[in-house]
Design a protein around this nucleic acid. Sequence first.
DNA 1: ACAATAAAAGATATGTTTGTCTTTTATTAT
DNA 2: ATAATAAAAGACAAACATATCTTTTATTGT
Lengths: 142, 142
Amino acid sequence: MILSKTCEYAIRATVYVALKSSRGEKAGIIEVARAIGSPMHFTGKILQTLVRKKILSSAKGPTGGFYLENGDRLFLIDIVRAIDGNGLFTSCVLGLERCSAVQPCPMHEQVKPIRDMLHDEFSRTPVTELVSGFGANGYFLK
Amino acid sequence: MILSKTCEYAIRATVYVALKSSRGEKAGIIEVARAIGSPMHFTGKILQTLVRKKILSSAKGPTGGFYLENGDRLFLIDIVRAIDGNGLFTSCVLGLERCSAVQPCPMHEQVKPIRDMLHDEFSRTPVTELVSGFGANGYFLK
DNA sequence: ACAATAAAAGATATGTTTGTCTTTTATTAT
DNA sequence: ATAATAAAAGACAAACATATCTTTTATTGT
């Protein structure tokens, strides 16, 4: 798996919240969990984390829920970084602590372009792109 | 991390065993663990698994140890598959069970070429290539 | 003020990965 | 045969990821 399960949920949850936000609505934990097919309480924790990391906003009380202000300025890489950190794009594929461009492992050069492509892909994909993707026919969130 | 820690150890251990085998020598658990900087007992387990999966061979008793018969016909992908399975190359980046070429998630097409590059890279890299890589100056196994 | 709602927070549980330790089995050399 | 060696196997433990449940806090509408 490229991303942790937590991170997969986080992206799908954010996309769902963005979808609701685009209609001027907020989404509650139960609704999000149902929409993306994730365990409810765990989803709550993840949403909580995303709020703390400024990916999402939230409001308590009736009419409360999670929402997103600027989905077009939010990119997948922001979510990946918030949940899984930056290791996917930086840490040595063979697990060598000291591996770097200066002192590369034998796989370093071969893996670098692949890593960079992943990085670029997450960097250039705004959450809104997935919203329209999932909104369209044939796509689904769970 | 692209590969599990176990898989990173497995690759490095196999490379070290291949290096020794190229000199007609076997390598014991203690020696391997020291060479690649991994926890000894855990390394034993991994080597054991690699033997069961036909990646390595082993001999008990004095003059025993782990060895490799055909390092040039052994590719990194064989080790990755033996330890981490095939999920890295197949399972949906957003964690969607039903995601496939027929019913793709919005990231499917974008991620596919990256996945394929990773797959190709592991597939075309024989263990012997890393052996010479690590043998050369500037490289290291831990 | 009060009741209802919904997120935040905390405690606890389960599962998997990673790591350690001990015992057993097979092999070798003497 | 016996002692030494080294992998195989099994039991156990710690750390982390994933998941559940309960209590608290903030907000809203009445």
